[in-house]
Design a protein around this nucleic acid. Sequence first.
DNA 1: ATAGCGCTGTGAACGAAATCACAGCGTTAC
DNA 2: GTAACGCTGTGATTTCGTTCACAGCGCTAT
Lengths: 242, 242
Amino acid sequence: MSPSGMGMVVPEETPVRRARRTGAKPLSEPQVSRLSLYRRQLQARPLASPATIHSHALAALCGTSAAHVRRDLMTIGFNGSPARGYDVEQLIGAIGRELDDPDGQRAALVGVGQLGRALLDYFTTRRPNLRVAAAFDVDPAKTGRVIHGCRVWPLDDLAEVVREQGITVGVLTVPAEAVQEVAERMVAAGVVGFLNFAPVPLRLPARTFVEEMDITTSMERVAYFARALVAGGRRKDEHRAG
Amino acid sequence: MSPSGMGMVVPEETPVRRARRTGAKPLSEPQVSRLSLYRRQLQARPLASPATIHSHALAALCGTSAAHVRRDLMTIGFNGSPARGYDVEQLIGAIGRELDDPDGQRAALVGVGQLGRALLDYFTTRRPNLRVAAAFDVDPAKTGRVIHGCRVWPLDDLAEVVREQGITVGVLTVPAEAVQEVAERMVAAGVVGFLNFAPVPLRLPARTFVEEMDITTSMERVAYFARALVAGGRRKDEHRAG
DNA sequence: ATAGCGCTGTGAACGAAATCACAGCGTTAC
DNA sequence: GTAACGCTGTGATTTCGTTCACAGCGCTAT
């Protein structure tokens, strides 16, 4: 319990805020995901939208709860006014300060197959602060070209290009048999974060972050709970009704 | 605490086993994901592999812990022998009995763009118990054809085809602007589970299961934790070292 | 002015998933 | 035959994320 209730003007430093300011990075995985979504939804609002937004409204945009939104924004030390809500412009900035590397981050995509091309398409539209800077493939027929604005290099140049461009994030869309070896080569070249679309879990040294994008497993999960819904009856619902 | 320790031959009914047998479906989301992965990894083993496997080995294959494996298999009421481990063939069967619909389940994919085609490619190789039975698109240039073994229908036929084929799972690869409406039409036609690749959360009635496959958010999450690794120092590692 | 409403910020309670730790037992080694 | 080992099955514990509930306050309406 902090101060004797005097009417302060300064936003007042709470324990959580202090933790943030002093450099600890207590953002959890789900929080990062939500913050990313908050920003995207805010940026996607029509131009004529009001300059501020309440936790309820933002929650509705993102399919979550108002309490959740407030807690997340508190965690990054952003505060709004009880009357007006949160200033959208400033909030977008605050989330960026939290999530974005000020110097920018570069990613490499390996495996320019059908899925790889689709993802290149996805990513080219994103902000320059986090961009796919290079793509790689073993197939000589694919290398040398520029696909969706991204140059495709031979896989052999991986280490060199990754090092030169300071790439730290890897997107893996190679066949299952190849993914472990490719990932290890990337780690050796300095990549520490991976988005793995191959249907086999990576075994990488600690000090590495891997996000498994296992589409097959996701499909089976959906199928399972869809079945439970049809048969069983009650099931923790996803996302509120409209 | 159950029985006075008498050497029983029958596997012995524990509370958890009873819960399973009596029809309650207490499988959690992460458990379903892991079971799906266990099965896939077991099926992918070389033909000459031993007929049984220990929790440690399966855990290593799946990037999880032995305790986790044991707990999951206990949950589905499957048990192995302390000496030999788990019978692989029987385990695959047991997981199937848990995850698969005996009558099969059919899915529909909407939005045959680049990503949609890539996913169709992904899914055609799967077992017939859960298959993408139809695809849809608004573009008349794409309809009527068969892509990766899957017929592409005009979007207008959605309700009819979904009902006729008893489709309960939807894969959404349409543009963000269209996804909410498409999803609602599918719900109306009887679809209850969704895999949503559009970068906007769905708002659907309860009794519906939505899995958001938000690639942009995943990318930002990886970038964030990659940065934390490079800068910060300690960070909960993902997946054990080799 | 002043009363009342509704929103933010946050401690506290809750719930669920991961992890620990160990009893029991089959197996192997001697 | 007997001892020691290692694995399974599982209660107990811990950790972590979500949700609740309310104090405090600024705005609006009267």
